[in-house]
Design a protein around this nucleic acid. Structure first.
Length: 518
RNA sequence: GGGAGUGUAGCUCAAUGGUUAGAGCCAGCGGCUCAUAACCGCUUGGUUGGGGGUUCGAGUCCCUCCACUCCCA
């Protein structure tokens, strides 16, 4: 096994059902996880739900069910969605899991032992919906006399005993972290925001509540439950076996990257490293805050009714088609826009016409003219023309380009590189015109078909990270054994086996056609 | 109010201060017939948000204005 690689998404708050933004995050993280796995890393990928907090408690109460019941029901839907989207998680954690309670209590104790937790009285305005406290001057009175916070959500006065975390003591250490490890927060502009936030001064953080009991109990003081973010963030080390340093999973910590939405960067880039420093635990290597998906350039919200159901989208366009759209057309880290037209255009132009058709036209010729037998390159490697060699060299070089892109957490650039190969392969196929060679030089035709099939093989292997189901089907058609599908089988050292005999090929990327009357 | 960004072709986006600002999609023309109405070639398309400045040279740096986004208050 190769080096360890640990990647996580944020854990979703299952107060409602998943929306397309969740799907986007899961798919992008999955592409990276799959890529690392194929590239020989001993990879662990965690995803899950954050089921605690006052909001869940209240929603459950409103529905007349137990919080656990609500948590289970909605977490199931989130987990279903990750399965539908072919997301290859190793663990789907739920913060109600027993080991997670143990882990959260352990980190609490570690922080307390370090003298960073003290009990005091908290007085102030609290927004249940934001899970956040606000100062008086951050709130306003709405027209109907209700006090609302800066996000426009109602706040209520609370005056309760609470434990506090000495966040103020970590200001300098955090700034030092951002400076010494400039890629701790990516992309850059979010790093700048966090730096200026911390420079503005940090206040101690209220980290427990007594007004409800849905959460992880504070060790030694049962009437308190932990502030939801304390236990939520801890999920990342729970998944690595914390606090049991003998657990084999502990070798995965520190995580290589936490993939999160840009809205929760502060929790991950300020609170989380402070908690870990306090508890004496290594810090994750990187926090990557991705952008939001906009519907035709507009924010999605329940009030405008433009919220799209990811299950429905997967059904309509196909899972790999949806994954492709997310991964190719949006630079991870920037906001992205989607529309029906955009998705259809990319599905047809890139998947069906470019990749799908290249596979189909080359494999069909092999099936029809060679009885499915791929055959060897005529004359061995020395029999290759300059055009053949150039195309193969380009395909061979693609893995390195993809690695660069994945290490920068920009999958779209990996796909740009792959599609560059496909463009060239279509051009090559056209210029070589094997259908003309059929009569004039059948041996040459066979070499052209071999070279093209080899490029299709390499592209399909690379694409497994992004389009797992379709790529798998293509590799099936090429009779590539499961153990020959990782990245170690790319490049000149492992060409397509000349003894391969394929069956009648079938297209793996259908064109999207709008239903009649739509 | 303070701070950080963004603004480039109809659309989505590229361009260490350095030839004539590029690519994909869309559109138009031509070619091909292996293939999924697919593929290949060519073409149209730009006052780089406006104005000013620095420079031999500015999409890029500076000032200012406009529009939008985000963070903080």
């Amino acid at each position: 096994m190769g080096k360890n690689y640990y990647i996580t998404t944020a854990i979703s708050y299952p107060n409602g059902t998943p929306h397309i933004g969740h799907a986007y995050e899961f798919v992008c993280a999955d592409a990276i996880a799959r890529f690392k796995r194929l590239d020989g890393f001993n990879t662990r990928f965690q995803i899950g739900t954050d089921v605690h907090g006052q909001k869940m408690w209240q929603t459950a109460r409103d529905e007349g069910v137990e919080p656990q019941e609500l948590a289970d029901r909605n977490s199931d839907i989130f987990q279903d969605m990750t399965d539908v989207l072919n997301v290859s998680y190793d663990r789907f954690i739920r913060t109600s899991d027993a080991d997670h309670h143990r882990s959260s209590q352990a980190i609490w104790k570690a922080m307390a032992d370090n003298g960073d937790i003290y009990k005091d009285t908290y007085s102030g305005w609290y927004s249940v919906r934001d899970e956040a406290y606000y100062a008086e001057d951050e709130t306003t009175l709405s027209d109907d006399g209700e006090r609302i916070g800066p996000q426009g959500t109602p706040v209520e006065w609370v005056d309760e005993e609470s434990y506090f975390f000495r966040l103020s003591a970590y200001e300098e250490r955090l700034l030092k972290l951002y400076e010494e490890q400039p890629d701790f927060i990516e992309p850059r502009n979010r790093r700048n925001e966090i730096v200026s936030f911390v420079k503005g001064g940090l206040r101690d953080l209220s980290i427990s509540r007594t007004t409800f009991d849905w959460g992880v109990r504070v060790p030694g003081d049962e009437k308190h439950v932990m502030y939801v973010w304390v236990d939520a963030l801890t999920n990342y080390i729970t998944g690595a076996g914390y606090p049991d340093s003998n657990d084999p999973l502990w070798s995965f910590w520190p995580a290589d990257v936490h993939v999160i939405g840009k809205d929760i960067t502060r929790f991950h880039a300020v609170y989380w490293p402070a908690f870990l420093m306090s508890a004496g635990i290594e810090l994750p290597r990187q926090i990557f805050g991705h952008g939001f998906l906009l519907n035709k350039g507009e924010k999605m919200s329940k009030s405008t009714g433009n919220v799209v159901d990811p299950f429905q989208m997967a059904q309509t366009y196909g899972v790999d088609q949806l994954r492709y759209f997310f991964l190719r057309t949006i630079r991870f880290g920037s906001d992205g826009s989607y529309s029906h037209e955009d998705i259809v255009n990319h599905t047809n132009a890139d998947l069906a016409n470019n990749f799908g058709n290249l596979a189909q036209r080359s494999l069909s010729m092999i099936f029809k003219n060679l009885g499915g037998a791929v055959g060897a390159i005529q004359g061995g490697e020395g029999g290759l023309t300059a055009e053949d060699s150039a195309l193969l060299a380009r395909a061979d070089a693609t893995l390195a380009q993809c690695r660069d892109a994945i290490n920068k957490v920009v999958p779209n650039e990996a796909l740009d590189a792959i599609w560059g190969v496909l463009d060239e392969a279509n051009r090559y196929f056209d210029e070589q015109a094997p259908w003309g060679l059929k009569k004039t030089d059948p041996a040459r035709m066979q070499t052209v078909l071999y070279v093209t099939a080899e490029v299709v093989r390499q592209v399909a292997i690379l694409c497994q990270a992004f389009l797992p189901a379709s790529s798998g089907k293509l590799l099936d058609q090429l009779k590539i054994e499961p153990h020959e599908r990782d990245f170690a089988h790319l490049g000149a050292a492992n060409r397509l086996d000349p003894s391969t005999v394929i069956d009648k090929p079938e297209g793996v990327f259908p064109r999207y056609v709008d239903p009649e009357g739509a």
